[in-house]
Design a protein around this nucleic acid. Structure first.
Lengths: 144, 144
DNA sequence: GGCGATAGTTGCCTTTGTCAACTACAGAAG
DNA sequence: CTTCTGTAGTTGACAAAGGCAACTATCGCC
């Protein structure tokens, strides 16, 4: 791959991360940090319902996670219920309030996307998706 | 824009930020933080040679920036020379060591890109760039 | 029953980032 | 030339984010 191509790809990278990672201090105008938002998402949508699963997925320190989870429980977004089969573990689940918060986050994220790509025709939207898929399909995933 | 499209775009966003923004604590195996790396880049390649320019570009607190710059000076990566025409300001420039460090960062970033897209033919590379440009050209920039 | 491994908590610490006060200088207005 | 408002950068005090290690309780296994 030649230098010119690399330069252009790096430019795209800077562009894209800048646009999307709009570096909101609090995530999408909720009062949640990015980590808290990701935790709600992992629990609510990907059924990762123990701290150890979250540690793996989010690669975060377990001590720190423990405190963040405590904060979410205090804010009544999260419940920790004892696991009957493994008494060391605690099963995590969203409270109704937590589910609302997650729905709000998803709504805001959808709105953001819709705004960023507003005004595209159906054909252009299709082209856009094709372009994105092309990028996805041609990246070599690094195995960590 | 329909829901299915939004879902796919959000998936691309997650994918891309995950792949590229590999959340290194230290940037690309140097001993610099991401902010320090961006500072070197802005000074060395975009001629932003005062603190106030960096504050604008990187949207960082001026007090914090002041300290980070001090650290870079102590590490002999950066020089602050008095501005003759505006005695409040200090002109920032990279030391030879700073330039080496920047070159290293660029090299590492280039290598990363080359690895991620290894094995593409010239035609595929061209297609990839076209796809990326398509995405860039169809995003509505939010005016902040 | 004893033992190494695992789930989670807590204390202590460093780094990162925020905010306001402060000094020094610039530029314009009288 | 003086005064006044704005800008460049520094500093101190503090809050938030995150890392590290010790600790408790429990598990699964020999």
């Amino acid at each position: 791959m030649n230098n010119e191509a690399i330069t252009q790809i790096r430019a795209f990278d800077r562009f894209y991360t800048r646009i999307f990672h709009l570096a909101d201090k609090y995530h999408l105008k909720t009062n949640l940090t990015l980590l808290e938002a990701r935790i709600l998402l992992e629990i609510g949508e990907h059924r990762r319902d123990t701290a150890s699963l979250l540690i793996q997925e989010l690669t975060v320190d377990k001590g720190y996670l423990s405190r963040v989870l405590k904060r979410l429980v205090e804010q009544n977004l999260l419940r920790q219920t004892p696991d009957e089969t493994d008494k060391r573990a605690k099963r995590l689940s969203l409270t109704p309030t937590g589910q609302e918060q997650l729905a709000l986050l998803n709504q805001r994220a959808d709105d953001q996307v819709a705004t960023l790509f507003a005004g595209l025709s159906a054909a252009e939207t299709q082209q856009l998706l094709t372009a994105m898929h092309y990028v996805e399909d041609h990246v070599h995933l690094p195995q960590d």
